[in-house]
């Protein structure tokens, strides 16, 4: 059957690129972890809040508003 192609050269090149790129990136990643590149990310959890929509404020009330205090209660 003519359509049965042998694995072409492109495939081999791709696998080499994949392994090489993969290995390099994995080392880079390990290095990044060891040299604490990801250290200060924990403050990122607050990145979605700001003064107008601070922590403690519900931002979707399509079905109505919670009773009093609960919605404005501050949490760490």
């Amino acid at each position: 059957m003519a359509t049965l192609m042998p694995l072409p050269l492109a495939g081999l090149i791709l696998i080499l690129v994949a392994l090489l790129g993969g290995a390099m990136a994995m080392f880079a990643f390990l290095w990044a972890v060891r040299s604490k590149q990801f250290k200060d990310l924990s403050s990122g959890a607050y990145a979605i809040f700001d003064e107008e929509e601070p922590v403690g404020k519900m931002t979707d009330n399509t079905f109505g508003f919670p009773e009093s205090e609960e919605s404005t209660e501050k949490r760490d």
Binding site: G21, G22, A28
Partner: peptide, 13 residues
């Protein structure tokens, strides 16, 4: 760039 490399690496692996 490390992040993107990592992303590509996992896929290619």
């Amino acid at each position: 760039s490390i992040f993107f490399l990592g992303v590509l690496a996992t896929l290619f692996l």
